[in-house]
Amino acid sequence: MSSHFSSPCVTSRRTAAAGLLAVALVRPARAAAQGTFERESLQQAILGFTGGVAPTRGRVTLDIPPLVENGNTVPVTIAVESPPGEAAQVRGIALFNEKNPQPNVITARFGPGARLGARLNPGHAMLATRIRLATSQTLVAVAAMSDGTYWSDSAEVIVTLAACVEF
């Protein structure tokens, strides 16, 4: 009888423990799933630009105001600087976003072809434009160098008035 009495207590404790465990297991799993879902298109866009190579952080400076009042025109400057002594030229610059309807913002290339590139395009390059942001999100700028390396920088922005909503 005593076992009958204790059993519900034990089971409830067990279920409580199981419940906690389930929460502990599900929470990170869901967070991870959400993270990969949101990042996937950004990540895929970046890998599509680099041809499957994960870019290294550095050499690129992504300059954007951290707090954006109007998402319809946000000034962005991307600068790439090679350390002195490096012969690689900047082949291209691309900017990607996390939460706009499309992951691409702008994809630029600087003087393709080794001959032209060497003549017209040094290891430093700059690109500036004005972009639209649908919501607060992360932006990633990637630079492609002539030696086949890819460099990146990211920035987080908070948007108070989103683009694409006004009539």
């Binding site: 319809n72 025109t73 946000v74 400057t77 976003n97 706009n100 309807p101 499309q102 691409n104 913002v105 702008i106 994809t107 630029a108 290339r109 600087f110 003087g111 393709p112 032209l116 003549r119 017209l120 395009n121 040094p122 430093h124 390059a125 700059m126 690109l127 500036a128 434009t129 004005r130 972009i131 639209r132 942001l133 683009a163």
Partner: peptide
């Protein structure tokens, strides 16, 4: 001879402003 080329997407603001560097 091509110095600069950019593909623009919907995320570019109205009245596209593009600045780039050139040697």
């Amino acid at each position: 001879e091509e110095v600069f080329h950019a593909e623009l997407y919907q995320a570019i603001a109205a009245n596209p402003f593009i600045t780039f560097s050139m040697l």
